[in-house]
């Protein structure tokens, strides 16, 4: 049985610190890694347990086998549904923006975006022609394995199949020759190994226009919170009308040069209607959202008071010499969804 927990994010608890990457001994992970995904842990969930088709038993533990075929079918269904419908929290945010937007032109854009979401849902057309790089964030229990082709190859196959069968655009190309790969692979896979035997797959098709407006910086620690704030606001200001506002802003602070952008992207998975449990992060999110919405960019960039639907911030420890900051901008077609197997 597949638990389709798309949008039912409370069933698959969010982790607002990027805990899955943290090493033991860091005070932030005192809750323990296994608390990350109780709803998807096979052993903790009788509903899933019944469905276990296969397992490998050893003297001291049992390894859960997840069928690659079952995974492929579930991921194909996920890709199709995510590409065609707007998450409920994003839709609600667009509706709130429509109620609050002061400019006539801005309200017209917001009405078009809501009508587009309705039309895509009704017709099965993709919400946006840019059906994106296929980005997957996977949390896989160390006591689970995928039979047959394995995790990565199965996600690649599911992507290839869904982009073809769903009439989605193949947007991946060779970086130098610009020759299209023809099947929207390779995927972008971020894998966290976690305790337990669950498998949680989050899919974020990421369009190029907003991705191009994203930035990363390696600051000296002396820049502090004001440096972070200035960088986020400057990134949004420079992006202006380009990334299809109203936007969502994912911010990753900490980690290393490679991880800050990863957690900024991961932040885009956080639903807009769920408060950040870290009070410092929540305060900075609110401050940034307010400052962005005081910029006269507005929906479609045509002016107005609703440039941004939400700012989401993930933190992670970093080197004592560093303050990495990454800003990943997401467009108004902020598609995402997840399944738990």
């Amino acid at each position: 049985m597949m638990f389709l927990c798309r949008w039912l994010t409370r069933a698959c608890p969010q982790t607002f610190f990027d805990r899955a990457h943290l090493s033991a001994g860091t005070p932030w992970i005192d809750a323990g890694l296994s608390s990350l995904m109780p709803a998807v842990s096979h052993s903790d969930s009788p509903g899933i347990k019944k469905e276990s088709a296969n397992s490998l038993s050893y003297e001291d533990f049992t390894m859960r086998i997840i069928s690659a075929e079952r995974l492929r079918q579930a991921v194909e269904a996920l890709i199709l549904s995510v590409s065609r419908s707007l998450p409920s929290d994003v839709r609600a945010a667009l509706q709130s923006a429509l109620a609050e937007e002061s400019s006539v032109q801005g309200r017209e854009i917001l009405r078009q975006l809501l009508a587009n979401a309705d039309y895509a849902e009704a017709t099965g057309l993709p919400l946006c022609q840019d059906t994106g790089t296929a980005v997957f964030f996977v949390e896989m229990g160390e006591d689970a394995r995928i039979d047959g082709a394995g995790l990565q190859a199965t996600l690649e196959t599911a992507t290839r199949n869904a982009y073809a069968s769903g009439y989605l655009r193949n947007s991946m190309c060779h970086p130098l020759t610009r020759a299209n790969t023809g099947d929207n692979t390779p995927i972008s896979l971020h894998l966290d190994l976690v305790a337990g035997d669950g498998l949680r797959i989050r899919f974020l098709p990421k369009g190029g226009g907003a991705e191009n407006m994203s930035r990363c910086a390696m600051f000296a620690p002396s820049r502090g919170i004001s440096g972070i704030r200035d960088f986020v606001l400057d990134t949004v200001r420079q992006a202006g009308p380009n990334p299809c506002p109203p936007i969502i802003v994912g911010v990753g602070v900490g980690g290393t040069f490679d991880l800050a952008p990863t957690i900024a992207k991961k932040a885009l998975l956080m639903p807009l209607d769920m408060p950040n449990p870290d009070p410092d992060a929540a305060a900075l999110e609110a401050e940034l959202l307010d400052a962005i919405n005081r910029m006269p960019i507005g929906p479609g960039g045509l002016g107005g008071t609703r440039t941004c639907l939400g700012v989401r911030l993930l933190l992670r420890p970093c080197h004592i010499a560093s303050l990495p900051v990454a800003v990943n901008i997401q467009c108004n077609a902020a598609r995402r969804g997840e399944i738990c197997l």
Binding site: Q129, D130, L168
Partner: peptide, 20 residues
Amino acid sequence: YVGPTPPPPGLPIGSAGPTT
């Protein structure tokens, strides 16, 4: 400036919004 999605059966074109 557009790179549309492929046309589903019965339609002339798929989704076709502007690119940057």
